[in-house]
Design a protein around this nucleic acid. Structure first.
Lengths: 233, 233
DNA sequence: ATAATAAATATTGTTAACAAAATTGCCGCA
DNA sequence: TGCGGCAATTTTGTTAACAATATTTATTAT
């Protein structure tokens, strides 16, 4: 992510950020049709840049692209959630293995800052900010591996991860899920604190376990909730 | 990959396949500028679809995209080669772990066919066909994991992998690299036979070792050769 | 001659119009 | 009423022209 309304130079990016935010923040219903001319009209630009953005979003998985028929907001199933969490976790562990669990001083600082952000956002109902903070935290783990292309792949999963955040949040608000007596925000803080602790002490094994716990728990929550209230599919 | 001139419906895809082939087959020099109007003229279509293709190629990593300045054929360094091989190998091992090393009957059949293709292509000087056969072989490994999104990520690395093939082939033709007395084609056959053998016997550990050997050896060859003749960067 | 500057050219970014395809709504008909 | 097919509409795919930016060439001053 790392949006922060910066560097929105060209129109394709304006459309891209707009649509991503709309989708991740839940202002567009899954399955909803995305009509190029409508979008370009609301953004006061032409269809070209909007098409660019939609193609990018299709690659990211936030949008389903049906040739000659247009785009729809992606319907995300519990399987999708499982896959995204599994993959992000796997890529992060892969990076950590490469770095031997060692995140440099700058990275640790960035993670501490991100964690502070997460804490300060607890209960603030600012999903996008939460997603960005989470992103910043985990990014440092991936970057520690020093593998550019690994980072790019991980980054490509970020928008979908953000969308899953929305689902998790919605579930959390319905909140029949047991969190050992903690709120969604508190659980998130606990998990990230554990990861940071492991990384700071350079304990690769524990860091991997902490990451697994974090992502698997998220997947679990979505899966369980899909059994109760019927999520998509 | 899986091209085979099928389903080239829309013009964006025509441009995409054309450019990918040109780059992977080495008909375009690394660093070379890709002028939209030139390409659209040679393909007898307008700039729009060409732009689409270039954006996709930039995501795949075959092309460097410089905003407001245009695209150039990517300069691939030994580090890039290492990263691509490392990532593809890691994703394949991840998939195999998920499937417990078990590839179903259809998958095995497809791998055997792909291996036959690789064998029949030895020394035929048809790089694209070689890449496609290799692709088919490894795809079955990734598919065994049953994780759609993992497969998509792996697929995204395919064009870059194809480009690396070209480099490997060129190095092989200069051939100061020791291959234990074997040609590049024979080495490739040996490695794939070992992988297939492991997968057929359901030996996850050995399959992972075989994959590592395959990809690490490739990376090694490129790295060593970069020390002798100065590759890009 | 060289460097700085300005004009000319080339190239990308964006738009609006056109073509092709899909969707919708209407009508007749059983 | 319900169903098939044709016309009207909508929407995507493509194009060509226009605008903005970058690059090259030419010009001038030192």
């Amino acid at each position: 992510m790392s949006n922060e309304d910066n560097s929105k130079k060209n129109f394709s990016d304006i459309a891209l950020w707009y649509l991503r935010e709309q989708i991740i923040d839940g202002h567009m219903q899954p399955g909803e049709k995305l009509i190029e001319s409508n979008i370009s009209e609301t953004l006061n630009l032409s269809r070209g840049p909007v098409r660019d953005a939609l193609k990018q979003l299709a690659i990211e998985g936030l949008v389903d692209y049906h040739p000659n028929k247009g785009c729809t907001v992606a319907l995300l199933s519990p399987k999708d959630a499982y896959e995204v969490f599994f993959l992000r976790g796997s890529l992060e562990k892969l990076a950590l293995e490469k770095s031997g669990g060692h995140v440099d001083a700058y990275g640790i600082l960035a993670m501490e800052n991100a964690l502070d952000e997460i804490k300060s956002l607890a209960g603030a109902d600012n999903l996008l900010a939460e997603v960005n903070a989470d992103e910043k935290f985990h990014a440092q783990i991936v970057l520690s591996g020093q593998i550019t292309r690994l980072y790019k792949m991980w980054e490509l999963l970020s928008p979908l991860n953000g969308a899953m955040f929305l689902t998790l949040k919605n579930i959390g608000e319905k909140a029949e899920i047991d969190n050992f007596g903690k709120s969604r925000g508190d659980r998130l803080i606990d998990q990230h604190e554990r990861i940071l602790r492991a990384v700071k002490s350079g304990d690769l094994e524990e860091a991997c376990r902490a990451l697994d716990a974090h992502y698997l728990r998220n997947g679990e929550i979505i899966y369980r909730s899909s059994l109760k209230n019927g999520l998509n599919k």
